[in-house]
Design a binder for these strands. Structure first.
Lengths: 223, 223
DNA sequence: ACACTGATGTCAACGGTGTTCACAACGTTG
DNA sequence: CAACGTTGTGAACACCGTTGACATCAGTGT
């Protein structure tokens, strides 16, 4: 990598390269000593822009959420559709970078993008007819469901890549070899387990929550 | 710590002490160099019982699931109640050890206890009237919802402990200080956000899924 | 009874990590 | 043009997981 002139190292470029690095070589490759050279710079130079590694990780997570948010049209009138769009975009962004997503997905970011997501969901709750305490309660069910599923899916993708490389066992296959006498149900259903479409499940789980929101919203509405 | 006689170091005791250590001093304190002395033994002695740290983590996760499973009565006739019991027990076990749960919750354990959980849920699906492909699909929605929420909650508890110690900011308070012009909804609902009961949300999200299972099950039932 | 063998614990070492600190080089500001 | 704060450098520190050589002990076969 060519050396770079002074002052040309920015937070956003660090985040970008860090994302590429982690994706190309695995989440465990995301280290200052490797990130520095990838930027054409000494390893510790990055620390001038991020206090510590944690701050870098949060920034990366923020970037992921940011790209997801960019895909959501805030002018979409249907609140359910807005939430769906947000959810799909978030899922897409995280699953596209599973190895870094897993480092970040279970963190509370407390940064710009996260607040915008919260605001967006709360707006939808309001439009659905929810106010005050109930809005807060249902918001959290929606947000946590989204976050939890996203984190989980990212993990599945990431360890799917890493673990399978590690011990050569295909994730889903393991269930097939279990003793049928102790795990009769697993044996029965095992062949179907591997063909379940994760995206469908994600959508299904989401719809269940949205149904609940809609039900509570219209029930409590005055108009 | 007193030295111990040869051969008295067992896998189960290592897991137990590791759990205590991680809980008492934080997940990052779970290192061989500290775990060894806590057991009255050289740091590397643990490696005679676990090939590497990953294997130790999986064993710890297995232990958590094991204690959760022990609380579930398999003779309970109502399948919904069985799933509820499993879910609550799992949540309890993980939230009771948040700092180690977060290390483990997003992993696929592929161990004894995990298989038993799968079997238990699949049994409930069957009793609900689901078969074959649909049973597999709904099983995964149930299992992933349980897992995702549990992992998420453990994380919230763990970073709640760690982050608050780190930068002294009360988790929920942050939302209150956001600029009201850009985040009007957050400002509006913020006071309620902190008083939402997480356990209620967990139960609510769970019930939504169980409703879906029941609906599909009875629809497809022959009797 | 004795040699052998495998299992278990110890210790030193290796290569890796995040982070700190003194220092050098540069741009900006007074 | 001098002073200063910012940014990149490189050595160093403490810690990590893991390995391999070594000692020690329990159990076994003869």
């Amino acid at each position: 990598m060519a050396k770079r002139e002074r002052g040309s190292l920015t937070r956003s470029e660090i985040v970008k390269v860090a994302l590429e690095l982690a994706e190309a070589e695995g989440g465990e490759a995301l280290t200052f000593r490797r990130l520095g050279p990838a930027l054409g710079v000494a390893p510790t130079a990055v620390l001038r822009h991020f206090r510590d590694k944690d701050e870098l990780l949060l920034a990366i997570g923020n970037q992921l959420l940011e790209t997801a948010l960019a895909e959501v049209d805030p002018a979409e009138p249907d609140w359910r559709e807005r939430i769906r769009a947000l959810s799909r975009a978030t899922r897409r962004a995280f699953v596209a970078h599973p190895r870094v997503a897993v480092l970040v997905a279970t963190r509370t970011l407390r940064q710009e993008a996260e607040f915008r997501v919260v605001e967006l969901i709360l707006g939808a709750m309001a439009q659905a007819g929810l106010r005050g305490r109930e809005a807060a309660s249902l918001y959290r069910v929606v947000a946590d469901t989204l976050l939890a599923w996203t984190a989980f899916e990212a993990t599945v993708h990431a360890v799917g890549l890493d673990v399978m490389r590690k011990d050569g066992l295909a994730w889903d296959r393991e269930y097939v070899v279990l003793p049928a006498d102790r795990y009769p149900r697993i044996r029965e259903v095992a062949p179907y387990l591997s063909e379940v479409d994760r995206e469908d499940q994600f959508e299904l789980a989401l719809e269940l929550v949205l149904d609940a929101v809609a039900a509570r919203g219209s029930a409590g509405r005055v108009d």
